[in-house]
Simulated assay, not measured.
Amino acid sequence: MCLGVPMTVLDDGPFTALCGRGGERRAVSMLLVGAQAPGTRVLVHVDTAVRVLDAEEADAIERALEGLAAAMDGAAFDHLFADLVGREPQLPEHLRKPS
């Protein structure tokens, strides 16, 4: 399984940027999203930034990744999905039947 992970631009460049997540630092291609200012959050897949993220989306992805790690370790993870616990799943608007 391949996952994209949110990373923060630490040092920008025209084609690559130094990005970090936790204690990890790596050179990331910025060719798909263009040069980004330090502090910008990007979704990184195979050392390539594929999309610029806003803070809310980056945090949601981080919680999902934490939840996945917790589930794999047999630890509690409901607190990471508080917005989903206790409610029925909802289809995105574009998949719903017109009323």
Rank of each mutant, 00 (worst) to 15 (best):
M1T: 09
L3T: 10
L3F: 12
G4C: 05
G4Q: 02
V5K: 08
P6Q: 01
M7I: 15
V9H: 02
V9T: 02
D12H: 11
G13D: 09
A17W: 03
G20K: 06
G20A: 07
R25M: 14
R25F: 15
R26P: 03
V28W: 03
V28N: 02
S29F: 06
M30Y: 04
M30S: 13
L32F: 13
G34F: 09
A35T: 07
Q36H: 13
P38W: 14
P38I: 04
V42A: 07
V42Y: 04
L43D: 00
V44G: 14
D47R: 03
D47C: 06
T48H: 06
T48V: 13
A49V: 07
D54L: 08
D54M: 10
A55I: 08
A55F: 15
E56F: 09
E56I: 12
E56R: 15
A58H: 05
A60W: 08
E62G: 05
E62R: 05
E62K: 00
R63G: 00
R63Q: 11
R63W: 03
A64Q: 06
A64S: 15
L65D: 02
L65W: 04
E66T: 04
E66A: 15
L68A: 10
A69S: 06
D73C: 12
D73M: 13
D73G: 15
A75V: 12
A75M: 06
A76M: 02
F77K: 00
F77L: 00
H79R: 08
F81C: 10
L84A: 00
V85F: 00
V85D: 00
G86Y: 03
E88Y: 02
P89E: 13
Q90F: 12
L91W: 04
P92Q: 09
P92K: 05
P92D: 14
P92I: 11
H94W: 11
R96M: 05
R96T: 07
K97S: 00
K97R: 00
